[in-house]
Amino acid sequence: MIQLQAVTKEYRMGSETIHALRNVDIDIMPGEYIAIIGPSGSGKSTLMNIVGCLDTASRGAYTLAGTSVGKLAGDRLATVRNETIGFVFQSFNLLPRLNARENVELPLIYAGVRKTARRQRAMNMLERVGLKDRVTHKPNELSGGQRQRVAIARALATNPPVLLADEPTGALDTHTGVEIMALLEELNREGTTLIVVTHDIELALRATRRIHLRDGEIIQEEVS
């Protein structure tokens, strides 16, 4: 599903070159549940951006769902994101002016889905995450857990094979966090590849495989 070979990411900061990632090799099979773990500055955000096609590697090869995305131009990457990756962010990243249904419709607009089909699909997704009765609520009328459910519904809208969750429980209380993780894990059991990026060991322990990063390098991989 996801295959990174010797991926390196460098940034230039003035005269200095910062190695955010060094020679990272990762191979993720379809339907896996992976946690990427490491302290801040370990390179996990950079890794997530590359895996999520928001950024491209300086060197190395990245194959996503059979497509080599390493050298794709911006607009092609946008299409790959739209079709292949569902993002779940720590801070939800919902558009405050749009209601729950309209937020879920956003990726479908960029996928070119017609209005009625789009609306129907958004309703189905919201029902799937248990928010059938909140479709016309704006984000500020929803609790944190509900907002994250809307975000998950949005991530699922184009039916992508990969869910990429960046600290999905970071802004939630423990109880709500557990509920959200349970929802994500349920989706994983239904076949979606789930990648959780976190610095929380306890959260990482729920995954079937953990990739530890430090200073831009994989220092440990373990399977539970």
Binding site: A78, T79, R81, L95, P107, Y110
Partner: peptide, 16 residues
Amino acid sequence: TREIGIRMALGARRQD
């Protein structure tokens, strides 16, 4: 800016 970032993450192309 943030809205633009979100839209891009969700698949908006530059022309969109």
